[in-house]
Write a protein that binds this DNA or RNA. Structure first.
Lengths: 231, 231
DNA sequence: CGAACCCTTGATGGCGATCAAACGCCGTGG
DNA sequence: CCACGGCGTTTGATCGCCATCAAGGGTTCG
């Protein structure tokens, strides 16, 4: 890692308040690496060599067997991923690949395990990071079990809008095919789902989404006040 | 909590290796309570007052809006639940109720937060507990997205058998209606799914499941070597 | 003994997957 | 500069899984 990059990384939520000496030790053994788009980072089933943190860019976590595949999460900066595997030293449950060119901080997992065990502030960060991931997947599972595809899309749009301070127009963060997989449907049906939402206050053109009637959209999607929240 | 019960609780994985003084402090403020079956413990959306640990019995975590409901997990001894909410002080994402008469240890969440922050061994236990929950929901989500209902049931049976050291005959841990909800289907279709599995080496009579041909079942269900594992 | 309640079995319908083909966008190469 | 080819997306037609509706059988408990 270059010296110029250290302050930026040190400011990450996970590292911000930890002991500087220990942090320095972690950084000394870590790599901040730039990856091209569509590069596989690791496979499900592997033992975790590194804890990964997305500093810039976007990473897709996905699973699947030979026949089928599905994207489990999209990781945007600044978040770690597979902390659960790295800390407990169990095989990855998901594979990872970059969606865009990405800068990723890679820290050897034995090192991060020790550091978490020895630094209270880092541990707190790790607990929060893990708790965030836990809650994300709880949400994703209930989204999947309780709602049908068009509702999921509607709530996704509301959530994205919410993360942009309620912006009524924004760009989709990923290709539609990836979004379809994230939402548990086929690209064909995502296309049709956007069509349905046209009658519920949403216009889509290319990659840009415009909410023309947020109230009507909310009425259709029925977001859950607890479940459909960032964080 | 009665004095006679303390050693049993102190032996729980979460508490086993923590500082005895701090543990004593936690116990002094905790309740070990017996609940009847079908009792609601808390509702999604509430702020977490207590960390719960199932010592005996069985607890169902579930979500749902007015129309639909689904069970998210079945908690069997000895596990904590909603640690993520209790530690980060965010509202519960799921509701909880007992399935059977249950003994549950309830620890005020501010207390458990402090204790985790101050006791390294407890913190490790909490990290592992959280990591376990995280991985459980990752599995559940990919199970839901990648497999259809009969496959899910087949893999559930294989998993239960695996947890009983490969026993070829065992009792279903919950009512079939609850199992159906856990597996994301209706009771009617669970019934039909058992029917289908009859041609793949599984016989069901009442609550007892018998695997007559484990190989044929595995061939049909195609369990994932990484995903379909306890722990 | 009767009444819930759970489970099962059957019939029907809808959501979404699959198959198929055409469109639009964008790169490369002539 | 334009033709071509690849790929993501859209649109249409069909099929299959599973939910829903409905009714009957079994068990448990008051």
């Amino acid at each position: 890692m270059r010296a110029a990059e250290k302050p930026e990384i040190a400011a990450l939520p996970l590292f911000a308040s930890m002991d500087p000496d220990q942090r320095e030790q972690i950084f000394a053994a870590s790599f901040l690496q730039v990856f091209p788009p569509s590069l596989k980072l690791f496979d499900a089933g592997q033992k975790p060599d590194f804890l990964h943190i997305v500093v810039d860019g976007m990473v897709e976590l996905f699973t699947g067997n030979a026949d089928r595949a599905t994207t489990m999460a999209i990781i945007r900066p600044v978040r770690s991923f597979i902390l659960a595997a790295a800390y407990t030293d169990q095989p990855y449950l998901m594979s990872a690949r970059t969606l865009t060119a990405s800068r990723i901080l890679m820290t050897p997992s034995p090192l991060i395990r020790d550091a978490i065990d020895n630094d209270r502030e880092l541990m707190r960060g790790a607990m929060h990071e893990l708790a965030f991931g836990f809650r994300y997947f709880v949400r994703a599972l209930s989204d999947m079990k309780l709602r049908q595809s068009v509702e999921r899309l509607g709530n996704f749009i509301l959530l994205e809008s919410g993360e942009r301070d309620g912006a009524v127009q924004f760009e989709l963060p990923v290709e539609k095919r990836t979004l379809a997989s994230l939402l548990g449907m086929t690209p064909e049906n995502l296309s049709r789902a956007f069509g349905v939402l046209a009658t519920h206050g949403v216009i889509v053109s290319g990659n840009t989404v415009q909410i023309t009637d947020a109230e009507k959209l909310a009425e259709f999607a029925r977001p859950d006040p607890f479940l459909d929240q960032p964080g």
